[in-house]
Design a protein around this nucleic acid. Structure first.
Lengths: 118, 118
DNA sequence: TAAATATTCAACCATATGGTTTAGTATCTT
DNA sequence: AAGATACTAAACCATATGGTTGAATATTTA
């Protein structure tokens, strides 16, 4: 099963589209955290926070190491690289460097049966 | 009504989390397009494509100029700057430049009643 | 062993999302 | 004026999302 760039971008951007999850990533940037740690700042159940972490994990933004009864989460910023690279192209557009944008578009990875640069 | 960074990021990332919409942005990077132009590559109704464009517009990624019966869409990459800036911080993390990350986190814009860097 | 702790699972709920179809509103063309 | 074109609106549908609560599982502590 090949996992396509597009699918990973879907998951990554969707994971980032929630302020709770972005906050969790910010917390993780300061160091590894348990689920409880990550849940603490939010007015929601542990179960709800647990689901958020699971979504971050599914997007590859977070890895989990189970140690005893604690689940220790670690930021894995690698998945963000693709998202960052995607937005990068439009930054170039915004900056007026259309030549650079076109060069970037020309090097796109394509998913079969889809014609656009997604 | 102040519109908070977090809310705009929600809308931007959510808009980017769909391959149809990312494809539309890629098309728009090559020049202005009508709704029909944007819809053409996809196997969906015009109405469905129209909804996608509306979401891009709501996220501030696209502007629309109505000329006669045609709606001409233009890429507005400005909204992407915040998303790009957000992911930028984690790029620094990934690159091992933790000092730079911490500096970036320290300059965050905060929404009242929320403590995290979202 | 019993109780507390850390977390997930399952069922449920309200709302959002992405699609459809049909109808409606302008605008352009003939 | 009539018809074609470009699009939006509204109603509808299936599934996803983000939350809840209560129960289950594992592990640590007393």
């Amino acid at each position: 099963m090949v996992e396509y760039l597009s699918d990973r971008l879907d998951a990554t951007f969707a994971a980032l589209a929630d302020p709770t999850r972005r906050g969790m990533l910010a917390t993780l940037a300061t160091g590894d955290q348990t689920i409880s740690d990550l849940a603490a700042p939010y007015a929601m159940s542990l179960a709800a926070a647990s689901k958020h972490v699971k979504k971050l994990e599914a997007a590859g933004l977070v890895t989990r190491e189970i140690r005893g009864r604690s689940h220790i989460c670690r930021l894995d910023a690698a998945a963000l690289r693709e998202a960052h690279a995607w937005t990068e192209r439009y930054q170039k557009f915004w900056a007026g460097r259309l030549d650079a944008l076109e060069a970037a578009l020309a090097t796109d990875i394509h998913k079969p049966e889809r014609t656009e640069n997604d």
